[in-house]
Structure formats: C-alpha cells, structure tokens
Design a protein around this nucleic acid. Structure first.
Lengths: 104, 104
DNA sequence: GATATAGTCAACCAATAAGTTGACTTTAGA
DNA sequence: TCTAAAGTCAACTTATTGGTTGACTATATC
C-alpha cells in the first residue's frame, strides 16, 4: 500500500473521520476520543492505530494515558491528487484536454 | 456507507485511481481499461463496479461494449472535506483555533 | 497495600474485499 | 452461419476489516 492508498483508505470510514474532526479541537486522550462512540475502547483504539499507521495521528504516551494528535500532512498529497480532477467536476474539460494534449 | 465513505474508500486503491486517471483522457471501453493491468478483466470489471457504485464512473452500453466515463462530481465533497484540514497541514493552527473559539 | 483507571493484547467472529476460473450471453464480423 | 470478442455471472479462495470479549500490564490514587 502506498501512502496515498493508506490515506484514502483511512479516510473511508466515518468513525475515523470523526476522530480526526475531534482532534482538530486539540490533543486528546484515547479514552476521551472513545467516549462519544458506541463501541468498545478497543475498537476505537484499532481505528486510531489505522490512522496512526497512515501517519494521520501521532500517539504519545504520558503516564498511563495515550495522547493523540492530528498529523494532517499526509492529507496534502490526497488533496493534491483530488485537485487534478477539479476541472472535471467543474465541467471545464476543454482546458484540461488542451493541457494534456500539450503535455503528453 | 455515506457518499463520503464510498468516495474515499473507492480512492483507496491504486488500481482504481489508475482507472480514473485513464478516464481523464476520455471515455474508454472496459477492455481498453483492463488492458494495461496484470489481472483478469473480471477483476477490473469489479473495480469499475466499485467506482460506478461510488458515482465516480458512469457506464453506458453500446453494442457489446461497455464504455466508461469519468464522473468527478463526488470528488468535490471529498476535496472540500480535506480542505477543512488545510490549515493544519500548513501549520496555521492559530487562525483555526481562534475561528473555532469564536464559532463553537 | 488495595483499588480504580488507561490501555494493550490475543483470540475469536462475521462480513467484505480482491482476486481467480469456467461457463455463459450477446453482439460483430468473415 | 461460424467464430471471435466483450462482457457478465456464479462459485470459490484467501486476506483484511471492524467489531467483540476476557485476561493482562502499567500507572494513579486512596
């Protein structure tokens, strides 16, 4: 799996996106993160691991608690990949078609 | 699965992203799409189905061949979701933190 | 020292994903 | 009409995902 694979795959789950949204409000302990979800802490822990392996979250241990921090950097590449298609969802095909003609 | 789930999940696979990239060069038959990949046409067909169910590709039958067209619209939502995090990967936390303070 | 809290780990389960193959249908072309 | 091409479908395999529970470790706190 490439970084892009991991990033997109990690984002393809609502629970994980919600975790990331939570982390925009600042660092949080795993138990805090898990609290609003109707699933075991272990399950949330697994989601955090997926995010962490994708580089979207950094976990640091202090005492007995694990603090999670948002690490948005990998999203940049994903956003850039998507931007390639912006002309298409905006319906401006012609400009891109010409660009691709001129840059084969 | 929400639309966003489906979009991100569909993009979390290199083969599928390659298919989409191919389709930026215009409509293509399934067999054309499948040709460069080292897997069966059936496998590619399944990938196209995933893309189609995510609304990222539209398939139209003409004669015995299925033509696939890029349908980029769902990417817009994904891009917008990612943009929310732009301030983070750019390191401009302060501005967003203030925004969130003022808009709780 | 006793107990509660934060979290991991291993084992398990059910569902889904990603691929294969072989048989089949439909359409095109010689 | 015969054959080849485009594609689907069903069945199967293997691996991964998303979740559970129960036992465990490590750290706080009383």
């Amino acid at each position: 799996m490439t970084q892009l694979d991991q990033t997109f795959a990690a984002l393809g789950d609502g629970t994980r996106r919600a975790i990331l949204a939570r982390l925009t409000r600042g660092e949080a302990a795993l138990s805090e993160i898990a609290e609003p979800f109707e699933m075991s802490q272990t399950a949330v822990s697994k989601h955090v691991r997926v995010l962490s392996e994708a580089g979207l979250v950094r976990v640091s241990k202090r005492g007995r608690t694990r603090y999670c921090r948002l690490e948005a950097a990998p999203m940049k590449q994903a956003a850039e990949w998507l931007e390639t298609y912006q002309t298409f969802w905006e319906g401006r095909f012609v400009a891109l078609a010409r660009y691709l003609e001129e840059n084969p």
